[in-house]
């Protein structure tokens, strides 16, 4: 299999940069910081390029261009003419950079914030309030017919679970109710709510561990060449690239240490 020099170089650069970031696990060091700032620069640039070609150009510049061409040729620009408004709003937004006129930028900001506020309001009310409340009320009759009190083969579905769900939800909500002092009965209910919340947070922790390990697996697969075909590996030699990167980095860090280099914060090394 033949790979272009750029592809081969890319594979080695990718492995080297991975090792640079992983070096933070030993301690904060200049190579890590260099890679970190490289990442910041590239990621911001990627965002801007994609925002320009994905949104700015097709949704504003192209229709404005068409409208301008139409006007110049004496024909009707039609609906494209409306695109001048977002162009103006964007121009006004950039006045934020001019101290004397920065207040004018409040207009597009107000527009955007109000739009998000309006969308959030109805979205939250519909999906997270109404639907969740409605779906939490168990149909006990149907649960009894389908599963009885407790159906182990259906993950504990049944009347008991239906009741635990709705009572647990109420208890959690009461736990977050601060408009009245938590007297004894309320404390008991609130306690039940806390226990339910602990179950939920515990499950979240379990899933979070899984997610974090998964991300490290992805990097390990690249360093070991397990994400490529055997033919590609025969050309790229990812394990040699990994080893070479580690050796190079250890050398650089050794020189840095010998010259009296210290991590800027103790956070990375404190035990």
């Amino acid at each position: 299999m033949e790979l272009s020099t750029a592809t081969l170089l890319g594979a080695w650069v990718s492995i080297f940069l991975t090792i640079c970031i992983l070096s933070f696990l030993y301690e904060d060091n200049p190579v890590y910081k260099l890679a970190e700032h490289l990442f910041l620069g590239v990621s911001i640039a990627v965002s801007v390029v994609e925002a320009y070609y994905g949104t700015f150009k097709p949704n504003m510049l192209d229709p404005v261009g068409r409208a301008a061409t139409a006007v110049a040729s004496g024909s009707d620009p039609g609906w494209d003419a409306v695109s001048v408004i977002p162009l103006l709003l964007c121009g006004v937004l950039f006045l934020k950079l001019v101290p004397k006129l920065s207040w004018v930028a409040r207009i597009p900001i107000a527009f955007l914030v109000a739009m998000f506020a309006g969308l959030k309001l109805t979205g939250e009310a519909n999906a997270n309030l109404m639907t969740q409340v409605a779906e939490s009320m168990p149909n006990l009759g149907q649960l009894w017919i389908d599963h009885g009190l407790w159906d182990w083969s259906a993950d504990g579905a049944g009347v008991i679970s239906g009741l635990v769900l709705v009572l647990g939800l109420c208890a959690c909500l009461l736990h977050f109710y601060f408009s009245a002092p938590h007297n004894r009965p309320l404390r008991v209910v609130s306690r039940f709510g806390v226990l339910m919340l602990m179950f939920g947070f515990g499950a979240s922790f379990g899933y979070t561990v899984m997610g974090r390990i998964s991300l490290a697996i992805g990097r390990a697969q690249e360093l070991l060449g397990l994400d490529r075909s055997l033919e590609q590996n025969a050309v790229v030699h990812p394990r040699i690239a990994t080893l070479a990167s580690i050796v190079l980095l250890v050398g650089v860090l050794a020189v840095w240490k010998l010259r009296g280099g210290k991590p800027e914060s103790d956070e990375a090394t404190e035990s």
């Binding site: 969308l119 959030k120 979205g123 939250e124 519909n126 999906a127 997270n128 639907t131 969740q132 409605a134 779906e135 939920g200 499950a203 979240s204 899933y207 979070t208 899984m210 997610g211 998964s214």
Partner: peptide, 30 residues
């Protein structure tokens, strides 16, 4: 889910990260 699934009654499925998994189970149950 918040913006369009309920409003237009869309058939929506999700593949998500493990961190978001427990958050989306109520959506699946509903």
């Amino acid at each position: 889910v918040m913006q369009i699934q309920g409003q237009y009654n869309l058939k929506l499925a999700s593949s998500t990260t493990a961190v978001s998994g427990p958050d989306y189970i109520p959506f699946y149950k509903a």
